[in-house]
Amino acid sequence: MAAVVVLVLVAMLAHWLVATKGLRWDVVGDYLFNSAILTGVRRTIVLTIIAMLIGIALGIVLAVMRLSPNPIVSGASWLYIWFFRSTPVLVQILFWYNLPAVMKSLSLGVPFGPSWFHTDPKTAITQFTAAILGLGLNEAAYMAEIARAGILSVDEGQTEAAQALGMTRLQTMQRIVLPQAMRVIIPPTGNETISMLKTTSLVFAIGYMELLTTVQVIYGRTFQTIPLLLTASIWYVAMTSVLYVGQYYLERYFARGSAR
């Protein structure tokens, strides 16, 4: 019975997709491999990859810090996670993009002391870097919680065995705990990556020309809004599907040596 209902609904949807003239599949076909669209797709991919790499790397560092016996180290990590999780990512992207307006210079060095690295924030913060900072630093806060859960899932006997062999805390983490934690960390990281792929579209707010912004610019000119949104959707679906496959192989790799 349920299957019949589902089949009827699917048939209705298919009919609607084919029969609705306003969807203009011919326009979708024209734009699907348009060079501007393809550039947008490439930028969406680059943005997703870099933001996730920053998120994963910083997230793992934050998770290890969070579990440190030193209260200053774990406190700093807690503060970071709390701050970045409690503000919307769109606000963070806008914040980074508009930061140069209030900062005359950007430098790296000893507080109130000498600085080694110096740059003008107006040239350093582009639409691209603001997008990366906003997405990557926010993602790190979420990845930190995922990595922490993964680390805590590893049997304490593993840490003890490594310590008894004379390994330091860092060696134990790197060689023994994190590789085992990966089994728990990978599946939600796949979800985060899929979610990130779509969250990158938020950077339309600062005008970075990734997939969605490109599509918006085109339909702003041609008024073919729905066909172009369909074009973007097809690309998002295609990219997400690739990620599904990648996640399957990663999970298989990190499950080695375990029965499940």
């Binding site: 008894a164 004379g166 805390r169 085992q180």
Partner: peptide
């Protein structure tokens, strides 16, 4: 310090009730 404790531990072998082998290796 942590490194010194680790060096001392390296000179003492320990065998656990539940083996605690590294399953991913």
């Amino acid at each position: 310090r942590e490194g010194e404790v680790a060096r001392k531990r390296a000179e003492i072998g320990m065998v656990f009730q539940r083996f605690n082998l590294f399953p991913h290796m």
